[in-house]
């Protein structure tokens, strides 16, 4: 196991008007030189202790990094892929010692679980599903949902993992008659699952019974919306969407995220809040992540922007560092850090306060 060189760089300068601050605490350097595609944080048991580790994905290599003292990181395992490149890491909550990845070229062709042998000495890969996979999401209680096929042959499947990471059981959900773009859990409701579809509908499933409960058409102002988070409060469903195709509005600026409220009983919905870029900032949503009440997005301009969903406005901007645009951003699932990645493989860990 080779120790990788990491470094702590200077804290970047911030716009004093923005109340949030991002402090750079650590940097992981990718020595492979291949194109970096994703990052995630997960728990991994090392020598009897569960450690908050970082997983990095390049096109053909996924690596697990364990924390050392003083914000240094050591690469302990790597999984190699020869034929199909990695598209994304699929974080599965409530599970340790396992990472899922989606592989493919433009579309997902395979989902694999990455593990280690019981003695911890060799890496293992298990094929979970293959085919024309459209959407995938890790769910609470060691579950993973994926949809494959299109229209009449669309299949929506839940895989539940055993504690040792093996695939325990599979269950099918009733498919909607339109292609699913994304899935989202409903916070606090472990049996509910949402999906957004190509026809700008939000569908609701009961995960216990597999029933498709409702199809709700949302405002057509923004096409191809991605659902990031949902919660139910006082009989209403609140949903945070991002709008990759949103056009700039002269009055509002660029809407990147939006909070909508849905009455699932009547299927009526309305917009509650638009989360736009501050004046003077240009760019559309490219990629992003929502955790608790914080949303982070990489914009087409190469900048990362963060919104406090409760305050309703952008709280921090992170311009490109070292002349390199940002290409992906994730909130850490193991603490409150922000993981920001560049195409060349460098991952920056920020503390957001």
């Amino acid at each position: 196991h080779s120790a990788e060189q990491t470094e702590i760089a200077e804290v970047p300068a911030w716009d004093s008007l923005n109340p949030g601050t991002l402090q750079l605490v650590s940097k992981l350097k990718n020595p492979s030189g291949s194109c970096s595609v994703d990052v995630s944080a997960t728990w991994w048991e090392i020598a009897g202790f569960k450690e908050p580790c970082i997983v990095t994905a390049c096109e053909y290599v996924v690596s697990l990094w364990k924390p050392l003292d003083a914000w240094q990181w050591e690469k302990i395992y790597s999984w190699h892929f020869t034929e199909v490149p990695v598209l994304q890491i699929v974080a599965v909550p409530d599970i340790s010692n396992l990472v899922c990845v989606a592989l493919g070229n433009l579309e997902i062709r395979e989902i694999r679980a990455l593990l280690c042998s019981p003695d911890g000495k060799s890496e293992k890969q298990v094929l979970l599903s293959s085919g024309n996979i459209k959407a995938v999401l890790g769910l609470a209680q060691r579950r993973l949902v994926s949809s494959s096929g299109t229209l009449c042959d669309q299949q929506v499947e839940i895989t539940t993992f055993a504690e040792d990471g093996g695939s325990k059981e599979k269950q099918l959900l009733m498919p909607p008659e339109e292609t699913i773009l994304t899935f989202a859990e409903v916070q606090g409701m472990q049996e509910a699952l949402l999906g957004t579809t190509i026809m700008n509908n939000i569908v609701i499933w009961n995960l216990k019974t597999g029933q498709l409960l409702k199809k709700i058409h949302i405002d057509d102002s923004y096409q191809a919306s991605v659902c990031h988070k949902a919660y139910s409060e006082m009989g209403l469903l609140f949903v945070v969407l991002s709008h990759p195709c949103a056009k700039e509005n002269e009055l509002l600026g660029s809407p990147v995220f939006q909070l909508i409220v849905i009455n699932p009983k009547t299927t009526l919905s309305m917009g509650v809040m638009l989360y736009c870029l501050p004046h003077g900032q240009a760019g559309r949503f490219l990629e992003g992540d929502v955790k608790d009440h914080f949303a982070a997005a990489v914009l087409t301009s190469g900048t990362i922007a963060i919104w406090d969903l409760l305050l309703g406005h952008c709280t921090a901007l992170l311009p490109p560092v070292s002349g390199q645009n940002w290409s992906f951003v994730k909130w850490s699932g193991t603490d409150s850090h922000l993981l920001a990645g560049q195409k060349d493989g460098n991952i920056f860990v920020y503390r957001y306060t």
Partner: peptide
Amino acid sequence: CNKADLGPISLNWFEELSSEASL
């Protein structure tokens, strides 16, 4: 926004929709 525009609200919407879907 006005909650009244969303129609009658049920706190048990998930259970009610699940029962309706079983029929």
